[in-house]
Structure formats: structure tokens, C-alpha cells
Design a binder for these strands. Structure first.
Length: 292
DNA sequence: TACCAGGAGAGCG
DNA sequence: CGCTCTCATGGT
């Protein structure tokens, strides 16, 4: 048994931490000097990546780092996942552009709440809303000496006590009543997020979609980013654009057909492939990738 | 200024 | 069923 320590080095290859933390699956990580500072559960965490390892630092000594290995999915063999992607031109381009991109394993409530806030918002705005929410409703956390104070993501029970007006003051606009109603269903025990994780994907999706403000896309985000359903394939405006442009050029294809195509074309880790397409499209827009 | 953003839900024919 | 409109807010 290793002694409890505040830092730990994990040997790791093929892990692009920057791409992973900025690819629109999580909204709280901040680049700081040469590393990343964020919160996992009720722990302040700093991550530092180099080509062969990830070094983690916490505020208080840790004996069992399993929670971090789980969050970062350190034991996942990326090459095995990538081999299940279809060998077509769009995927090859996305793979080249996004080498080392990973999927995290998030807390279901934080993921659900964050994506309820995500609808028709740009990622920097989602980050701002989530930041305000944590600052105003989250539990204060221990941080190392000299570090800025930070808070946990607020529990459903805490948000359930807020008023719609207070939530709107966090700049979430028309999403406020959705988040509030969902928080109250979960806090009141009317909806069991833990049980959803034990259901087959289709049943879990249907269950999630009974929550206010949760449609197909947000349900799929929770399934993929928090429940480990690597087949779940969230289709947002960017992924729609990617699928239409790359796979159905000059055709009129409706959303249900895109879902059907995605489910059959991208294999058992379709959701993983989806994240590569999403990130690839964003890199293209920012012109940070070569087209040829 | 006009348009768009990791959508969902309601109303319409 | 398929389409359109609305819902806040901030960025380009």
C-alpha cells in the first residue's frame, strides 16, 4: 500500500490532456501556467501532462487515487478503441487532427446539469454560467496554500432550494426553469440518477428524457460522458454539420436518418468517434488544422 | 447589424 | 409526423 501523498505521477501515452479538457465535454478546467486546475467531486486538482505522463496534485493527501484514474479513464487502451472506428476518409482526417483526444468519466449530476445549461450556448458561455453556479451555490473546497479559492459543483438539493430568478441571475436565461425543475425532481427522490446508470441504454435514454430540459441530445451526452455508454452518439449542430458535409454531401438528410446512420456506421465506440468529429469541426473553424 | 451558439418544448396543419 | 417559433444572452 502506497503512503498517502498530495502528488502522484501516472505513466501515460497517447493522452492529449489539453484537447480532452477543452473539447466541450467538461466546462470547469482552466489552463494555469503549464498545467490545468479543476475540481473532481469535492477535490481541488491540478494536472500536468508531458508526452509520457500525467502528474496530479491535490490539496490534501490521497491514499487511493482510483477516483482520478476513473475520471481520466487512465486504464483505457485508446488504440483498441480507435481500431473500432470506420476506416473512411472523414474519420482518418479527424483521427490525425485529434490524436490523443479522450473521453472522461464524469459525475452524472454535474454532467446532466451542465448540459441542460448548454443548449444554444457557445462553450465559453457555458463555462461562465457553470462558474457562476459553482461560485454561488457550491461548497467551498480546500486548496493548496497560495491557490485561488474554489467550489464544488452544487448538489441538486442545493439548487432545488434556489428560486428561478436567482438561477437566471447566473445568466442561464430560459434554461433556469429547466435546471430548477430537474434539480427538484432529483433532490426530491422522484428521479434516481444512480438507477439510470444500471439500465440498458435505450431505457436509460428514455428515462433521462422525462426530465425537464432534457431531450435526445442532452440525454446522449449524459450517457456518453457520465454513464460510460460509448455507443451513445450526441448529435448537436456541429455534429449534424459534420455528418451532412462529410457523409451526405449535397443531400437533404433529416435528423432521424443521421441518428440511424451514426448507430450503424461508427461501431461500438460511436460516441468516441463522435467526439473526434466534434473536436475536428471546431479545429477546422478555428483554422488550427491543415485541410489537405 | 444580423446571425449563430454542444436544444427543448409547444403549437400548428 | 414534420415544420416553425420562442425561449436569454453573448460572441463574431
Amino acid at each position: 500500500m502506497m503512503a498517502a501523498a498530495r502528488t502522484r505521477m501516472f505513466p501515460m501515452r497517447d493522452y492529449d490532456l489539453a484537447a480532452t479538457l477543452t473539447s466541450g465535454q467538461v466546462f470547469r478546467w482552466q489552463r494555469h501556467e503549464s498545467g490545468w486546475i479543476g475540481v473532481i467531486g469535492k477535490r481541488w486538482v491540478r494536472l500536468q501532462a508531458d508526452p509520457s505522463s500525467i502528474v496530479a496534485e491535490t490539496a490534501e493527501p490521497v491514499a487511493d487515487w482510483g477516483w482520478l484514474a476513473d475520471y481520466l479513464q487512465l486504464e483505457l487502451d485508446l488504440k483498441t478503441v480507435l481500431r473500432t472506428f470506420p476506416d473512411d476518409e472523414p474519420m482518418r482526417a479527424a483521427l490525425t487532427a485529434c490524436r490523443g483526444l479522450r473521453l472522461l468519466r464524469q459525475d452524472p449530476w454535474e454532467c446532466l446539469a451542465s448540459f441542460i445549461l448548454s443548449s444554444t450556448k457557445q462553450i465559453p458561455q457555458i463555462r461562465q454560467i457553470v462558474s457562476l453556479l459553482c461560485e454561488r451555490y457550491g461548497e467551498a473546497l480546500a486548496v493548496p496554500e497560495g491557490r485561488a479559492p474554489t467550489c464544488a459543483f452544487p448538489a441538486a438539493a442545493r439548487l432545488a432550494q434556489a428560486s428561478e430568478g436567482e438561477l437566471r441571475a447566473c445568466k442561464m436565461g430560459f434554461r433556469a426553469p429547466f435546471l430548477l425543475a430537474t434539480a427538484r425532481k432529483i433532490a426530491g427522490g422522484e428521479f434516481d440518477l444512480g438507477r439510470v446508470q444500471t439500465l440498458p441504454v435505450e431505457a436509460a435514454r428514455a428515462e433521462l428524457m422525462t426530465l425537464p430540459g432534457v431531450g435526445r441530445k442532452i440525454a446522449d451526452c449524459v450517457l456518453l460522458f457520465a454513464c460510460g455508454c460509448s455507443h451513445a452518439f450526441p448529435v448537436d449542430v456541429w455534429v449534424q454539420k459534420a455528418l451532412r458535409q462529410l457523409y451526405f454531401p449535397r443531400q437533404r438528410v433529416r435528423l432521424p436518418r443521421l441518428h440511424q446512420f451514426a448507430a450503424s456506421h461508427f461501431g461500438p465506440n460511436a460516441g468516441y468517434a463522435q467526439q473526434y468529429l466534434f473536436h475536428y469541426m471546431r479545429l477546422l473553424r478555428k483554422r488550427q488544422v491543415c485541410l489537405s
